[in-house]
C-alpha cells in the first residue's frame, strides 16, 4: 500500500472577513499527482500555501511526512520542493549564483548543472535573473524546486508562460518524476495539463471543496451538474469543466467601439 505523504483535514483559513478555505480535506499518496483546480479566488493557492507551511491555518490539521509543515518547516523542506505562483529573486544575482545559493540550502542538493542543461538554461547561466524572459524564469523556478531532490513537489501554475513545446516536455519530465515515486500537488488552470498528468482531482469553488476523486469520477460529477442537453460523451475534461463554470464576462465592442 502506498504511503500517505500529505494529510489535510478540515482546513479553514480566513483573510480578515473573507473565508478563503472552508473545510478542505484530502490526502496525497506516494507517487501520485493530485491536481487542484477551480476558478480564480477559489482558494487553491491558499490551500497549498498552508500545506507548504507558509500560512498558518485558522483550524484543521495538516501533516506532511508526518509533521506539521508550519511548525517543522526546515525539516519538511528537506523533502519538499515548491514552485510558487508568484515569486521573485534578488535582481543583481546571476542564474548560476542563484543555483549555487539554493544548492547550499540542502543536505543533498541535486546536480544543478545537469538541470540547467535539461531546462535549456545552460547558455543563460551568467545572465542576471532579472533579465530572463518570463518562460526562462518559470523554468528556473521549476529547476530550483527540484534542488533538494524532493519526495513531494507542490507546483502552483507549473506551465504558465511556457510555450507549447516546453509545456509538453515539462509534462513528460513530471510524469517521469512521478514514476520515480515523487508525489506532486499540481495547481493548474489548464485542464489539458490536468488530464495529461493528474491521477486525482480536487475541485474548489469559493473556498469550498466541491469534488475529490479520479478524472473519470470528475467527468461524471461535472455531467451531473450540467444539464443533460449541454454535454455529450466525447466532451474532454476541459470542455466539461468549462461547461460547469459560469460564463465570465468578456469585453464588449460597445465599450471600446
Amino acid at each position: 500500500m502506498a504511503e500517505t505523504v500529505v494529510e489535510v483535514e478540515g482546513l479553514h483559513l480566513a483573510y480578515r472577513n473573507v473565508q478563503a478555505v472552508q473545510g478542505v480535506t484530502f490526502c496525497v499518496e506516494q507517487g501520485e499527482i493530485l491536481a487542484v483546480i477551480g476558478p480564480n479566488g477559489s482558494g487553491k493557492t491558499s490551500t497549498v500555501e498552508c500545506v507548504e507551511g507558509l500560512r498558518k491555518p485558522d483550524s484543521g490539521r495538516i501533516s506532511v511526512f508526518g509533521k506539521d509543515p508550519f511548525q517543522h518547516r526546515g525539516e519538511v523542506y528537506e523533502k519538499m520542493g515548491v514552485q510558487l505562483q508568484e515569486t521573485a529573486y534578488p535582481s543583481k544575482i546571476r542564474v548560476e549564483e542563484l543555483c549555487r545559493l539554493f544548492a547550499a540550502f540542502y543536505d543533498r542538493p541535486a546536480d544543478w548543472e545537469a538541470l540547467l542543461r535539461q531546462m535549456d538554461l545552460e547558455n543563460k547561466r551568467k545572465r542576471w535573473v532579472s533579465k530572463l524572459s518570463g518562460g526562462e524564469k518559470q523554468r528556473l523556478s521549476v529547476l530550483l524546486s527540484l534542488m533538494g531532490r524532493p519526495k513531494l513537489m507542490i507546483l502552483d501554475e507549473l506551465t504558465t508562460g511556457l510555450d507549447p513545446e516546453v509545456r509538453q516536455s515539462m509534462w513528460r519530465s513530471f510524469e517521469a518524476i512521478r514514476d520515480s515515486g515523487v508525489s506532486i500537488i499540481l495547481v493548474s488552470h489548464y485542464l489539458d495539463e490536468v488530464e495529461a498528468l493528474a491521477g486525482r482531482i480536487l475541485f474548489l469553488e469559493d473556498g469550498k471543496q466541491q469534488f475529490l476523486g479520479s478524472k473519470q469520477e470528475f467527468c461524471s460529477y461535472a455531467k451531473e451538474r450540467i444539464s443533460e442537453k449541454n454535454w455529450d460523451d466525447s466532451d474532454s475534461l476541459e470542455k466539461l469543466y468549462l461547461k460547469l463554470m459560469p460564463k465570465q464576462g468578456g469585453i464588449s465592442m460597445d465599450a471600446i467601439g
Partner: peptide, 17 residues
C-alpha cells in the same frame, strides 16, 4: 524590498528560511 517582492517567501519555502 525583499519582503514586498516576496523574495523572503521563496526563501521560506526552503530549509534555510
Amino acid at each position: 524590498e525583499c519582503k514586498e517582492k516576496k523574495i523572503y517567501k521563496r526563501y521560506d519555502a526552503t530549509p534555510a528560511g
